[in-house]
Amino acid sequence: MAETQVGEQVLLDRRGLDALLQALRRARYRVMGPTLRDQAVVYDEVRSVADLPEGWTDEQEGGTYRLKKRDDAALFGYILSPHSWKQFLFPPRHKLWSADRNGRGMDITPCEDDAPRYAFLGVRACELHAIRIQDKVFLEGPHVDPIYKAHRERVFIIAAQCTQAGNTCFCASMNSGPKAESGFDLALTEIIGKTTSHFVVEVGSPAGARMLSKVSVKKAKAADTAQAAQARDSAVQQMGRAMQSGDLRDLLQNNYEHPRWNIVANRCLACANCTMACPTCFCSSVENVTDLTGDHAERWRSWDSCFTLDFSYIHGGNVRHSTMSRYRQWMTHKLSTWHDQFESSGCVGCGRCITWCPVGIDITEEVAAIREAPPAPNRKEEDPS
């Protein structure tokens, strides 16, 4: 079969998609994609097209997630999984090293990182932006994270273009979607029918072209690409949220004493759901554990959150002991000071923090409230609370 070129668009039917999945598996990739489990669409191992959530979507609102049956046969007709791809690149829990007593001291054994060859299937545009943000955090600068690097280098990405948006989506406001422009090896736009669907596939990398050459495809015609573009454009009109983002850095830095922080703190449970669901949050902590003999010890890295009381502990006490100060830290970092650290926003508009907040706190609503209400003058020194 002839190899396609980067930037070329071709047609793929369901049998072709299944053949692509099998080709990835033969290449020793572990294909991870959308599946149905625990009354949700979750990313798990996909062995064939039959594992995909055909005919299902999800309804999302503040503090609400529900599966709903569609009236067609869409494979990628859901909005977003509760979990992000972060879980595969930046594992929630990872052993760093172990130590064993040997009579003369300790033998230290670094953890050999046997990173799987993952193929991500169904990555949305906002999630591609989130991966790029974490690339900047973990791979750029003088301190490269070896665990993230090992996982990231072995990933093959198949994007799924959004053809439908949800009530908590606002990626258009953050310039991160709904169309995936780059960062993928292949990108699928699903053309949905009543009983089946097919795909317009854009080749995004030489690796994607090589993999696509292993299956039977047809060259897309102008009518096919126009239909795909129309399907993608429809998602922009369906977004349930919006955020004026151009001036967020300065807006929040000029409003550290805004009364809205106390209002939202009265609702916030400091449960850390928003940071666990967020595809860009990267806070972590390390812990040492030993066996009962004291002869073996291990060091583990685990996800943490700026919402936990102990996260800001330094010698002498906690820097942020109130819920208000912790919520303010999260939101101002995500939307404002992230620009100073990484030259971009830390938010991609996926809306997960809204959906999975137990009390439905809405980050777009909080920004709007700070923008509209008169600000309180900032004090010269930060309130230690």
Rank of each mutant, 00 (worst) to 15 (best):
104 R>K: 11
88 F>I: 00
59 E>C: 04
97 W>F: 15
92 P>R: 02
66 R>Y: 08
71 D>M: 09
94 H>V: 07
90 F>R: 12
84 S>A: 12
54 E>H: 01
51 D>L: 01
97 W>T: 04
81 S>H: 02
65 Y>E: 07
55 G>I: 08
37 R>N: 06
102 N>R: 08
84 S>R: 06
94 H>M: 11
95 K>C: 03
97 W>L: 15
63 G>W: 05
65 Y>H: 11
50 A>H: 12
51 D>E: 13
47 R>D: 03
56 W>D: 07
34 P>H: 03
32 M>P: 03
91 P>Y: 02
58 D>A: 07
99 A>F: 01
76 F>Y: 12
65 Y>G: 07
38 D>H: 12
58 D>Q: 07
25 R>E: 15
42 V>T: 12
69 K>R: 15
60 Q>E: 13
74 A>F: 03
84 S>D: 13
69 K>H: 09
75 L>F: 10
42 V>N: 01
56 W>C: 07
79 I>F: 09
97 W>G: 00
72 D>E: 06
23 A>D: 13
72 D>M: 13
26 R>Y: 01
37 R>W: 01
77 G>H: 09
60 Q>V: 15
68 K>C: 12
72 D>I: 14
49 V>R: 09
59 E>T: 07
45 E>F: 03
98 S>K: 08
28 R>F: 03
62 G>W: 03
98 S>V: 06
69 K>I: 03
62 G>E: 08
39 Q>S: 11
101 R>I: 00
55 G>A: 10
95 K>P: 03
54 E>P: 00
61 E>L: 14
46 V>E: 07
93 R>F: 01
41 V>W: 06
100 D>F: 04
102 N>C: 04
34 P>K: 04
35 T>S: 11
83 H>P: 00
87 Q>A: 08
104 R>V: 04
59 E>L: 14
48 S>A: 13
67 L>C: 09
40 A>T: 05
85 W>N: 05
69 K>N: 09
52 L>R: 06
75 L>E: 14
82 P>Q: 04
77 G>T: 07
24 L>D: 15
60 Q>N: 10
94 H>S: 04
95 K>Y: 00
81 S>Q: 05
85 W>F: 13
95 K>M: 09
60 Q>M: 15
76 F>S: 12
78 Y>F: 15
90 F>P: 02
24 L>E: 14
22 Q>E: 13
27 A>E: 15
92 P>T: 01
49 V>W: 12
23 A>L: 06
93 R>Q: 13
50 A>S: 14
69 K>D: 11
40 A>Y: 06
33 G>A: 01
42 V>H: 02
39 Q>L: 02
42 V>R: 12
50 A>P: 06
38 D>G: 11
33 G>R: 02
77 G>M: 10
23 A>N: 10
50 A>Y: 04
84 S>W: 03
45 E>R: 13
97 W>C: 07
56 W>K: 05
95 K>R: 14
58 D>M: 05
43 Y>W: 13
67 L>S: 14
90 F>C: 03
33 G>Y: 00
103 G>E: 06
46 V>G: 02
24 L>S: 13
90 F>E: 13
42 V>P: 00
39 Q>M: 02
90 F>K: 11
